[in-house]
Design a protein around this nucleic acid. Sequence first.
DNA 1: AACGCAATGTAGCGACTGCTACAAGAGCGA
DNA 2: TCGCTCTTGTAGCAGTCGCTACATTGCGTT
Lengths: 190, 190
Amino acid sequence: MSEPDPKPKLSKETLLPLLAAHVMEHGLGEASLRPLAKAAGTSDRMLIYHFGNKEQLIIDLLGYIAAIYSAALDAGMGPERAATRQECASRILAMSREPMMQTFMVLWWEIVAGSARGLPGYNDAAEAMMTKQLQWLEQQMPADDPDPAGGARYLMTLLEGSLMLGTVGHARTAREALLASELAGPSLGD
Amino acid sequence: MSEPDPKPKLSKETLLPLLAAHVMEHGLGEASLRPLAKAAGTSDRMLIYHFGNKEQLIIDLLGYIAAIYSAALDAGMGPERAATRQECASRILAMSREPMMQTFMVLWWEIVAGSARGLPGYNDAAEAMMTKQLQWLEQQMPADDPDPAGGARYLMTLLEGSLMLGTVGHARTAREALLASELAGPSLGD
DNA sequence: AACGCAATGTAGCGACTGCTACAAGAGCGA
DNA sequence: TCGCTCTTGTAGCAGTCGCTACATTGCGTT
């Protein structure tokens, strides 16, 4: 924990990472200007100055979060495809168990909720992240898979259902569902 | 739209339905005492009086919402079981397309988000609703199904993933995933 | 040096937040 | 009738919200 950068030339680009870090930890619902500003080492006054208003700030922030999510998927992409659909499922489940992804999942459901409510920016971000995840999954599918695109869609749907059930206290339900789908071996954690 | 009941003996029991109606329409995130009170025909003063504080009000409200969700599932239960897993999936998808369920889904994702964040009451409500839905699904499974419990878990996981993708703008992804799972016929809407 | 403009600090506005102090009415038992 | 408790209304408090008016700083251009 060092001092928050003395004078790093305030701008959207320098602010967004700090804002995103705060939102990852504290959530979008309780994100008000003054705490956000404090986390970024500025004042609410400057956030409004750089983003225009809070709505635009949230929109930009969601776009940024979608971008870093995409980059994280790219970084986490194994050099070679999975050998089987099971292995493919295992890979993404392994990723989702990492602490950073756990933190992200908490934020993710807020984005889904905002998207369902029609809040500006939320749906764009959610759709972009799901599109990216779908592409990622498709590239991870076995080379000899008869239908990589369809398999990726099926896999993603099942996994997203699993993740939701997991966060809601039905991890056992989700785990057994994956076992029944024959997409996961018996080595699944929760 | 008639006058909001002149003097209907204020109590938790009479308040909760009115509060729930307001929350169904406007969401949980923006639910503050004064608008809630207005929707129930009272004052914030009385909400605090009857529920103690806002946190307890939300907890009670979530419990009430879980109860009416459960009752709605019971009411929507066909008299006989489905003939096939496909039909079982079709039934629940048909239910989820009804306007009331659409409204409910928007609220549902807020509950999931709150549960992920650890807000008091949210996880209990979400878990209860998923448990109920699982029971409902299991009772709807074909009588000759080799594994009704496992099938219900699998079906629910896949359907919840579908619903999430649908609200996020990936209805096509979800639809094609269901087709690939051979759990749904070609007559699926979105 | 003088100007001009972008960036920033200070202070505050009006609206809203959850919640509370205080008092008054209503019904009820003694 | 007297008190007592339950319920309700009125008013307001301290805090936070998004946002803005105004002044100041600093730096590049002329």
